[in-house]
Structure formats: C-alpha cells, structure tokens
Design a protein around this nucleic acid. Structure first.
Lengths: 221, 221, 221, 221
DNA sequence: GATGAATGAGGTTTCATTCAT
DNA sequence: GATGAATGAAACCTCATTCAT
C-alpha cells in the first residue's frame, strides 16, 4: 500500500489496519508480542509506516488493550442501563442483576479471546517502553470509564458511593488472575495431560462464572 | 562460604547464594529479569558458575517462585493443622477459620514482597525457555502440594471432596490479579498522584484482605 | 557507494562490499573464520547490516567459495571453448590440451589464494550452521556447472559420457588435498625449516602442476 | 575409576582409554571434536584427569591421527617388504605392485573410518591450539616414517631418490581430497538424493581405488 | 594421581527504532 | 506521507582449562 492517508478518516483507517494486524498475529502466538516487522508485513505496510502511527511497539498493544477495556466496560454499562429501572430492587433482584452482569462479562471474555491474553502481558511487558503521555492517557481514560461505570453500579444496586468501582476492580482482578492460572500454552497442556493435574486445569470459561458468582455473593451479602 | 562447593550441603548453599542474588536484584528492578551477568556479579561468582547450578536464567526465577509457593502453601497448611480440632465447626467458627486463613495469606504476601512480583512474570516471561523436565517438575510439585493443602481444607471446613483446591485456586487468582492491578512502578505512581486516580490505587495489602474476605464469604455461603 | 542501497544494483554492490571485507580478513588469518563484528568493521558497516545480506556468518564464506568455484569452472570452460575445434584431436593434441588445462587451473589457483584456503574450511567448518535451502542452492549450482563443464570436456577429448565430470572431480580432489598437505601456517614453517622436512614442503604451485600432470597422464592413457 | 596409574603401563593404559573414548565419540559425530567433558565421561574419568595425559583437547585428536598415519605407513611398509625381492621388476610387475599397494591403502582406509575423518579436521581445527613441541614431534615422526617408507618405495620400484616420498605425498593428497569431496553428513545426503547429484556422489571406496589407479598409472609412465 | 567445581572470554543473532530517499 | 535500509545495543550460553581439595 502506497496510498497516502490524508484525511483524518484515512488515518484512522490505517491505524485500524495496524491494530488488526497486531491482534491477528498476537492471537496466533500469544505470550510474545509479535515483531514490528511482522505486524507491518501483515498490515501490508512498511515498517517505518507503523511508526508514523505509533511511537513504540508497546503503544500498539496498549491501544488494543484500551479498546478491549472500553468494550468490556461499555458492555457492562449498557447492561446496567438496560436492566435498571427507577424502583429499588429487592435483594433477590439484586442477585439476579449481579448474575446477569457476570454472564455479560463472561460472554464478553469468550467472544474476545485477545482481551485477557493481552491483559496478561500488561504488567510485565506492555507497560514498559511507553511515553508517560501515552500511558497517562490510557490510565486516564480507563479510570474515567471505570469510575463512571462504577457509579452506574452504585445506582443500580443502591450501593454506597464508590462501592461499585471497587466491585468492578475486584471482579477484574479475579478474572485476570484466573486467566493466567488456567490458560496453558499448547505444549504445557500436553505435559499436564495426566489426571493428577485436573484440579489445576478446569475450563476457564466455566470457572470464571463460578468464581465470580461466589465473589459477588459475598460482596453483596 | 568455601570457594568450592564439594559436599552436597555446600552445593545447596551455593545454589541459595545464586537465588538470593537473583531475588535481590529482581526486587530492585522488578518487571524485568536481571541479566545473568548481574546475578553472577551480585553473588560474587563467575557467569559460568551460575550455569553449573541452573541451566537457563528462567530456571533461577522459577526456582525462586517455587520456593515462594512452597512457603505460602506450607504456611497455609500449618495454619490449618494448628486450628483444626476434631469436632465439627459451627458456621461462625468456619468463618473465623477462613478469616484467620486470609490473615495468614496476607501476612505471607506482606513479608514476601517478591512473591507476587515474580508470579506476575510467570505467565509471559518466566515459563519461556525452560526444559520440559524442569517445568514439569515445577508443576508437579506445585500441584501435589496444592492438592494436599486442599484436602486439609476439605477436612477443616467439612467441604465436599475437591472443594478445597478450588477455593485455594480462586484465592490465588484473586490475589495475583489484585497485585497486578494495584502495583505500580514508581514513575507511574507519580503520574497517578491525582485524586481522580484514587479508586484505582487502594493499598494492595488492605485490598487483598477485603477482597478475599468477600470472596470467602460468598464461597462459604 | 551511497549509504543506502536501494536499487538492486546498489544491493549487489553492498553484498560485494561485505564479501570483500570477509575475504580480506580471511586472507590475513586463514584457518579461522573472522568474527562478524570484524567483517562489519572492515566493510565500514554495522554488524546488523551484515545480517541483512547474509543470514549466518557461514553463508558469507560459502558465498565466497561459490564465487571461486564459479570462477575456476568458467575459466576451465572458457579454456575448452577456445581450444576446441571441430576435428578430432590426435593423442598428442589431447595431451597438450590437458596440459594447457592444468596450466589454466594452476594459474587460477595462483591468482586466487583464497580459494583453496576457504575450500579447506568447507568440510569441517563452513558447511555447519547453514540453512538447508542455502546449502542446497550452493550444491545445486555447483553440480550444474560442474556437470556442464564435464560435458565440454567429454566433447573436447572425445571421452565417454560422464568421464569429464569424473576427471574434474578427481582433479579437484588432488589439488585440494595437496593444498592442505603443503600449506603451513607461518609459525609451523619456522618449525619445519630444517632440511629434513624438505620432502614434505615442496612449493604448492609447482607441485600441483606436477601432480596433476601425472594424474592426467594416467587418466588419458 | 579412581585407581592411580603408577606404573608406566598403567599410564599407557589410561592414555589409551582416553584415545579410544575420543575416537568413539568422534565417529558418532564427526566434523566436530567432542567436548572434553564428553570424552572424560565416555572414558569413565574426570575431566581433570584427561588433562594429566594431554595438555589440550587437540593433542588428543592429533595423537589419534598420528596413530592412524603410523598404521597406514607401516601397512605400506609391510606390503613393500613382503612384495619386494632382490631382482629388478619388469614394468608389468611394477604396475602390479602399485596396484596391490593401492589395494592395501584402500583396505586400510576402509577398516579405519576415523582416519580421513580426523584428517579432514587437521588443517582447520586440529593444528590449532597445540604446543610447538607437540606439533613438532608429530611432524617429525610423521616425516621420518614417510621418508623411510618413501625410500622403501624407491628401492622396490627402482625409482630415483626421493621419488617415493613424492608419490606417497601425492597419493595421500588425492585420497584426502577425495574423502572431503565425497563424504556427506547425513542430512546433506538426503538433500542430495536426487539423480542430478549422482556425479558428485560416487562411493568413496570405489572412487579412491580408481583415482589412485589412474594417478599411479601416470606416475609410473 | 584424581577429581570436578569454578572460571570468563568470546561471538552470534535479534529487532526496535531512525532517517535518508 | 511512505518506505525499508541501516543501526548497534543487549544478552545468552558454551566449554576449554585451571586448581583447590
């Protein structure tokens, strides 16, 4: 591709091109950020072009992660808006709301396999090598949306102020921790095929529902 | 320490020397495994010597992590042995046991700052570049101890078979997820000093107690 | 040379730059492939640049050797084309042709001191650490040219089919064997200065003519 | 083995132990000198012990090569002694002697597969890293025996003085050159399985007889 | 004499990023 | 704006040899 992205739309398009290429490659071989050369090739661009849109490799993947966070949170937000009326909920209704929320989250995770994979890289790999500005913008946006959604939750469940954010944070912690504990690379799966390892390899998607269920049960008690 | 580790004890000592050096350096600059050269220097050894005791850099840190896991699990195990009598516990007593267990865990985390730091590297960095044998041995030992401790828990709380392991796994997931969500490198801390970020930076050690408390409350309901 | 090799010609030029640097260094200290760092320095390039043109160090030297083979064989080829008329040669004329061929070969060796030096590394050092593709391409081209030249020889000397290749192969074997037997590194030369060692250190360039002369005499008998 | 070699015989025995171990390992994976650690292990000795008998790794293999040379030359020597009477040989008888000599050589090569393999390492690898003394002793002994055998040849074939050595040297050159040209490591053999490569991979043991036959035919003409 | 623990020089290769074209 | 050639830091691991025990 040698077309020049002149209009703002074109730029946005090319940015997406890169992000998609990066996501595709990452899904093929997670636990390792693909090389910039590979991303460029996959996107049909030159290496240098990638650097016109992102200033480090990590930026690409943090941008991808930001999208995922936004998606999950907006999904939760939407769910809350849909299911909240004006009247106060009964205890049972609250639990039902929590339960459906968990379903919404688990569904999102299932349909966005790259989310927690990327997320698992963020602590050790992704947040290196980023400009303060970019990192700040990421955290800023994330916090804003999170707090926002937290407030929705406060309203929906008649929680005390700030409780919603806390619940969301802990929910997030639990699901990312579970992912990292239960996702094994292929060769490890073979190694752990023996029955004795069964306790440490339940299916993630079932497990996350159960664990979140327990957590919310306690949290709402 | 003698210059040459001839006896098996001496060897074990030298191994520890390396592990300690590695831990020390890692604590100074976590999120990045120190170079083998640096570890060797810190331990007062030559690079090659390190490779007499470990066959890759990652082995060193996985060995360190193995020690931590062993420590935490034995700590839990001990706690269970101390606090379990023969009679069946009342519901209240069970919650008290859970609560004290959480304390034990949280105390361990507080006194072993390297544990969750290392742990956070294990998904993306640590489990690369290891021989299948070593990795298997690690998982084997970990699973064995985990299942063992899980059984103790089953007994102590009169749980159905296998429930204990599950509780431990989810507890672990929650604490590792929280760590990664709440531990910020220094420069990020400065960036996030503003009040608006308060919701995303509660103190880890308080937070882990609270979150685990909620989880166990729900799990034992 | 431009700093950036953009056109295909420029690239070819830069490749040559590297090959020449490698050859120069190798001639200074044969029996040891120079380090890539040294080659890069000699060529006025960065180490990484070398790896843009060759994917392992050995590739560089095998490429060099390939050039030498091509040179020798084309030299032989040319010689045959020049000296072959349509009429059948008499026995004497055949021997004269052989003799002049030997001269052509020996002249080539004399003016390409790197050829047999490199060649002597090929068995034990050079053919390690090469991709199958590269090695195959090398052997393929070599075989093709060799067989081709062999056929010319068949024609020129009215040999039975395939005899020419065989003669060339044995000629090559003899000259490479002689080189390795008669080329001494400097410090060994001093060690073997005594008269008693004279029988094992005749001058290679005379010796190769004599030995090849004897061989061809027998081969054409 | 922790026995001490006190008597001279014991020492000689232990030396042989090392040499045999080295030969065995080298035969398994030629084109690469085995590591000293491997040799020691194979010999049932400690690494340090090896260095009591040889001062560098290369010494071991040069000693091995020396044995081979001695074996070949003594084999030739013996052959000459057996087949030489006092009377002058006819031309035909001379050719018969040469022919049987070639057979003797080729037989030796066939029954000593390590000879030319080792020999092929001598130019580029083996003669590095040796003390002048050792190297000199090697060359001295070799030259002495060679000249000696050469003289026998002079006598047997009524050659002019020194011609025998020359013939032997060229014979050696041809056979080592052929070996290096025709011995392919396994993975290359697969690569060159195609019919087009047939001309460059005749069987060494047949080829060496034919080529030497031609050479001697010319040399005795 | 024998051992094997310790040494540390040495060189390859990768790849994120820059910048001349 | 786009390209891709050039850069060069960074780090691993091997293994021959030494020497304390």
């Amino acid at each position: 591709m040698k077309t020049r992205a002149i209009s703002s739309d074109d730029k946005h398009l090319k940015r997406s091109l890169i992000l998609n290429a990066a996501r595709d490659l990452f899904l093929v071989d997670d636990r390792q950020l693909p090389a910039v050369a590979a991303i460029a090739k996959q996107a049909g661009l030159a290496k240098g072009t990638v650097y016109l849109y992102f200033s480090t490799k990590e930026e690409i993947f943090l941008a991808l992660l930001a999208e995922e966070f936004a998606g999950l949170l907006s999904s939760i937000h939407a769910h809350l808006l849909n299911n909240v009326g004006e009247k106060k909920l009964s205890k049972k209704q609250k639990h039902e709301l929590a339960s459906s929320l968990i379903d919404a989250i688990a569904d999102y995770l299932q349909s966005h396999p790259e989310f927690l994979r990327l997320d698992a890289m963020s602590y050790s790999v992704l947040e290196q090598n980023l400009s303060d500005d970019f990192l700040y913008a990421f955290k800023y946006e994330l916090t804003r949306t999170l707090v926002d959604t937290g407030k929705q939750l406060d309203l929906a469940l008649a929680l005390e102020n700030g409780r919603g954010v806390s619940l969301l944070l802990r929910t997030y912690a639990l699901m990312r921790g579970l992912w990292q504990s239960l996702d094994y690379p292929e060769h490890l799966q073979k190694l752990l095929a023996h029955k004795m390892f069964e306790p440490i390899r339940p299916d993630f998607h079932s497990e996350v529902r159960l664990a979140l269920g327990e957590y919310w049960l306690g949290a709402l008690a």
